[in-house]
Design a protein around this nucleic acid. Structure first.
Lengths: 203, 203
DNA sequence: GTCACTTTGCCATGCACGTTGTACTTTACC
DNA sequence: GGTAAAGTACAACGTGCATGGCAAAGTGAC
């Protein structure tokens, strides 16, 4: 097995955890090395410096999570959808209940660091992560509109509204999942959000 | 004039700016002192340490901004409201267009720091800031419901939905105002948000 | 088993920062 | 104008951190 790739994975996983928990500035290379089970010197054999490590981590984490989210979304909203409300609720529940706590903690760190991340890196992160997911939601809603199951409207705006209504309250109240809400409450929020979405976007 | 109170104000203002821009960890006392036009020693004559300074700053900033937001809200939604849609749009526009950039940058930093802020401080911040504003929106919507201008529903949930629809997209796309959106776009987002809210909550 | 490549441990350097003590200066008030 | 409170300049201490060098040890491929 290539040692190199193994170490790389370990480093990125460790860095994700530590950056997510501590934030960019507080996170130290020593801490990351410990978390990854690797020497600090090895980290510097793989990446140029701390900021390059951060950019790599956010990029790969965004790609991985966006992939999973789009896949779940296709499962819930793709193919035959007998009950639209039920499908939207299922999608929204998955979306509001982030499985990958580290990733979403990292998102908070990114949002706080906006002013210190190079524009290109930020843009590329948005493109592989949040915007990718947004485009996927949009495509599904456009299809529902074309099929006459939702009223015709700007699918871009509608996708934003759906995600905000379904996941926005959970995100803001739980600080992106840092202080988790009871499952019962999440379900209620999601159902009410979809309810409102459907009232507004019913054909 | 009491020098003491003057210096205190200068320190808190400078600390707000620096904490907002740099985040808690990266912000240094030297930087804050420079920004405030004060010696570092004076800072330590006013607060015990850096973390106490941070807690004081977030608390006072939350109080000040919440006060202004509630006041603007009362202006738009209180008293006689001939045109509900127009009033909601006016309110939402004020709400989505944060005047105090420092404060909202600080909010991002707080969200990233959740895991490092003592629970009591975080709770108290939420109570004087976001929850206070939420309760005020709620009260206005409850009144509209009682008057039959909105359908009867949980005002708490409705208030969340209104704020999310009106300001959520602006907040998330502009990173709480860090990368400002063109005014034209903000207006369009706000109008669409209110439109959806009214479709869902019309009597 | 040898070899090229990685990894590791350890040391070193230089810097930035939080925090404190001290001795001097400013300032509001009598 | 004198006095007590508050502010400032400056130096100092200890610590933690990013980063680099180097030689020794490990490891997969032949």
């Amino acid at each position: 097995m290539p040692r190199l790739a193994d170490k790389r994975r370990a480093i990125l996983r460790g860095a994700l955890t530590v950056f997510a928990r501590e934030g960019y500035t507080r996170a130290s290379i020593d801490q990351i090395a410990r978390e990854a089970g690797v020497s600090t010197r090895t980290i510097y054999n793989h990446v140029a410096d701390k900021s390059a490590l951060f950019e790599t981590v956010i990029q790969e984490s965004a790609a991985r999570v966006a992939e999973a989210q789009v896949e779940a979304m296709d499962r819930h909203l793709g193919g035959a959808v007998p009950d639209l409300r039920e499908a939207l609720v299922a999608f929204a529940r998955d979306h509001a209940r982030p499985t990958d706590a580290d990733h979403f903690a990292l998102v908070r760190q990114i949002q706080a660091e906006v002013g210190h991340i190079p524009e290109a890196a930020l843009d590329s992160w948005q493109d592989t992560g949040p915007r990718r997911v947004q485009r996927a939601v949009e495509a599904h809603l456009a299809r529902f509109m074309a099929e006459g199951r939702l009223r015709t409207a700007d699918p871009h705006r509608a996708a934003r509204h759906l995600v905000l209504l379904a996941a926005g309250e959970v995100t803001s109240r739980s600080f992106h999942g840092a202080l988790p809400l009871p499952a019962k409450e999440v379900d209620a929020i999601v159902e009410d959000g979809v309810e409102v979405f459907l009232r507004a976007y019913a054909p």
